[in-house]
Amino acid sequence: MNLSELKTPAELEDLYHPVMAEIKEVKRLSAMETYYRVELPGGEDLGHMPGQFVELSIFGVGEAPFSISSSPTLKGSFELGVRRAGMLTDVLLRQQPGTKIGIRGPFGNGIDVEKFKGKDVLIIAGGIGLVPMRSMINYVIDNRDQFGKLIICYGSKSDQDLLFTDELAQWEKDPAIDYHVTVDQGSDSWQGNTGVITTLIPGLDLDLANTVCCICGPPVMYRFALLSLKSKGFADENIYMSLERRMKCGVGKCGHCQINHSYVCQDGPVYHYPDIKSMQEAL
């Protein structure tokens, strides 16, 4: 690498300095998850694609990666769905609209939507895996003419933990969406499916040659979802998955998110399954 070919360092951007964005709206999604709508200075678009993430920080508290939940078709602000899982999210939970937080990004590759265009789109989302998948779902809904059928499989621990319930109700009603939901353990009032998310897959009506799938969920889910898809006859090259790791810097430097040779913050978080099949640390 010849350093002299680079821009002089003074011209390089500071990779680690966040812009200050404003929390515009806060809503409780469930006992553990909270929704935030965030606006960049001047209402500038984040310019992301479904599946990408941002690094969110609060000075004096810390910085961590969060999936972007809104579709790029939402203009003027973007949305996050945050699970309470530590110090930063604890403090975030106390923030009210009007508070400014640090944002860097968007980072990661996101979903290559071109690969889904003209095809039926199958989304398999477990737990907070729905947060990034919601970005893709709404992207498809807002660009209906570019995609085939939209099939959603969503699994959650219990019906109390279901996220974005208003939107779930709309998807259920929408004749253009084949929507399925299941919970591991339902409360007394739950009348829907009970069981892990993979129990939804055998019953799906799929045009195998023309369907592309994207999976996102807790680490244990991937292997079982893959098994179900394969026994259904789903081809590897039609499967994409979004993986979670510790993306600390977001710019391919700090090393924390590495899966074998791959930096999740650069090559992921959305991977084409054939590319990670041989990566032993991936699934």
Binding site: G60, V61, G86, M87, D90, V91, R94
Partner: peptide, 14 residues
Amino acid sequence: LKVFTSLVMGKEPI
């Protein structure tokens, strides 16, 4: 000092 400052700020110490 770290634990104390964290508690004053209302965040969990690491």
